[in-house]
Amino acid sequence: MKDLLIVIPAYNEEKNIGRVITELKEKAGDFPLLAVDDGSTDGTGELLRTMGVKTLRHRVNLGLAEAVRTGMKYALRHGFKYSMQFDADGQHDAAAVNRLYEKAGDGDHDIVIGSRYAEEKGSHSLRTLGGNLISLCIRLVSGERIKDPTSGMRLYDRRVMECFAASSHYSPEPDTLSYLISRGIKVTEVQVSMNERMSGRSYLDITESLRYMFRMCSSILLLQWIRR
């Protein structure tokens, strides 16, 4: 058995998740999958069951961070060395899973980010501007240069998973990343490509994005010193 568990947090993703699972089975078939159904009210749970994917179900919707945390707890309790967050909306490229896994294996890395801008330059859009701003904040605080801090495709090792399992202060967001770096966690990036969402609306529209940006930057710059 491989020692990487692919965690797929899913909330009302019946339109996308079928294809995501199929692609993962085709292109990253060596790795076991775990879906965390975060209290979906559509056919997501049913679809996962018919596809035979191991699924944990939150009875109520708790949000992405908690779905990822539940997945990590499962990985820890079943002896996995790594877990990877893989979004159910079809953004992430299943073919890149193995590259992140290999990167984690060679060398001293605790977190491997599937990065849109590790080697390639991003276009000048509002989204990349936001990402750059968060990057800048992380650099100011930790000295480390993370080119794609908002990418949700991340691989975590046990050391990091144990932090997540122990405290809800940790979330799969850039501010936690920044905090972990300043605590000596080693982060590296691997170039991946990402698709636009296959279907449905991204949870980040303009005002939502701005609010997110503001929350992340202020959290990175101002709140991290309070953390244990």
């Binding site: 965390v36 191991k54 939150h58 009875r59 708790l62």
Partner: peptide
Amino acid sequence: FKKLVGEDALKNG
């Protein structure tokens, strides 16, 4: 509450 829901999911699994 979050811990409870998470543990419940793990246990059911």
